[in-house]
């Protein structure tokens, strides 16, 4: 699998570390909604098809990326910096 890092260009998957589901959202830090925390820490869906995932370019620029990948074909439809995606989510735009 080749991931097109927005900073480093297309690189082999061997340079990256999978960092998990990028669709979950962390409750507000002071939140004591245990159901929300539980969902954030433990609950993961296992969807077929398109999925948003964090990948850390550990052997390159060390940026976390949000990779949108079809988990059944490994086709990657988009790669953005996680920071940009997270800022976009915070400001209400779709990432």
């Amino acid at each position: 699998m080749i991931i097109k890092c927005p900073y480093c260009g297309p690189r082999d998957v061997i340079e990256f570390i999978y960092q998990g589901d990028a669709t979950r959202s962390r409750p507000e830090p002071a939140s004591n909604d245990m159901a929300a925390w539980n969902a954030y820490v433990y609950d993961r869906a296992n969807p077929s098809g398109s999925h948003r995932e964090y990948w850390l370019h550990s052997g390159g620029c060390r940026q976390h990326l949000v990779v949108t990948r079809d988990v059944s074909t490994h086709a990657i439809s988009s790669v953005v910096f996680a920071r940009d995606a997270a800022v976009a989510v915070k400001s209400g735009e779709p990432a």
Partner: peptide, 14 residues
């Protein structure tokens, strides 16, 4: 290092 990078990139980008 990875833990800190994760929070800066993904959770607290601001």
């Amino acid at each position: 290092m990875q833990h800190l990078e994760y929070y800066l990139d993904c959770i607290w980008p601001n």
